[in-house]
Design a protein around this nucleic acid. Structure first.
Lengths: 123, 123
DNA sequence: TGGCCTATGTATAAACA
DNA sequence: TTGTTTATACATAGGCC
């Protein structure tokens, strides 16, 4: 997509890679959101950028117990419970029914449901 | 995409919903794969279809410990500062580097990296 | 279900602001 | 680096088997 094809290999130019990451990450989150709504399924998506030590997350408000359990299991082993600096409202925003748990989420506008957080504390 | 627009709401027709789920799920997995390779990031994606009690999963061969830990997957740890190679195992393989843990995964061909598994055992 | 096949709607690489 | 804009490459809804 875009002006040229793209080989499936790591983008070497740092700037381009970062730009591409931002664009594609948003696109992926949007698609995940659409899939969950259209097909009525639970979804959890995590993207971790080693270079920037930042975690991006998206997930439905898990409706099904099995899924919740599974995600719960994974999450429980999280070594970083939080670097959350008092974000009292990190739960289910208003207009958007779709959304995410996880600390420090950032709900931008319509199709930019994203959760991100610094992970320095983990290193 | 396709012949008509699509409202962002649950597809009521069961057959259409299933077909759409399959198509979009594959597309999402493919995009996740591309993102991980192009931008060199770790990704984990889970999709659970309540109706079919089936879990679909995709994830990179988590290279970064923090991510690994979070996902609750304890595998061989890879030096986080992976700029250095010395890890013949899980770094930038030629063709099919993307992989999946999880039980019962199904690696189809090139862009159909999917892991699926019945979840009855979890119910 | 499970593929094909296209007409269309989208995502996004590049270029530039 | 954070946003636009635009040209293209892709993804996929609907049909038809």
């Amino acid at each position: 997509m875009g002006r040229g094809k793209v080989e499936l290999k790591r983008i070497e130019d740092k700037v381009s890679r970062q730009v591409s990451f931002t664009k594609r990450r948003n696109g992926l989150m949007k698609k995940a959101h659409e899939l969950s709504v259209l097909c009525d399924v639970d979804i959890a998506l995590f993207a971790f950028s080693p270079g920037r030590d930042r975690l991006y997350e998206f997930s439905t408000n898990n409706r099904s117990p099995p899924f919740e359990d599974m995600m719960g299991l994974k999450k429980n082993s999280t070594p970083f419970q939080d670097d959350k600096e008092g974000d009292p409202n990190d739960y289910t925003p208003p207009a958007k029914k779709q959304v995410h748990h996880a600390t420090g989420y950032i709900l931008q506008e319509d199709n930019k449901i994203t959760t991100s957080r610094k992970m320095e504390s983990l290193l």
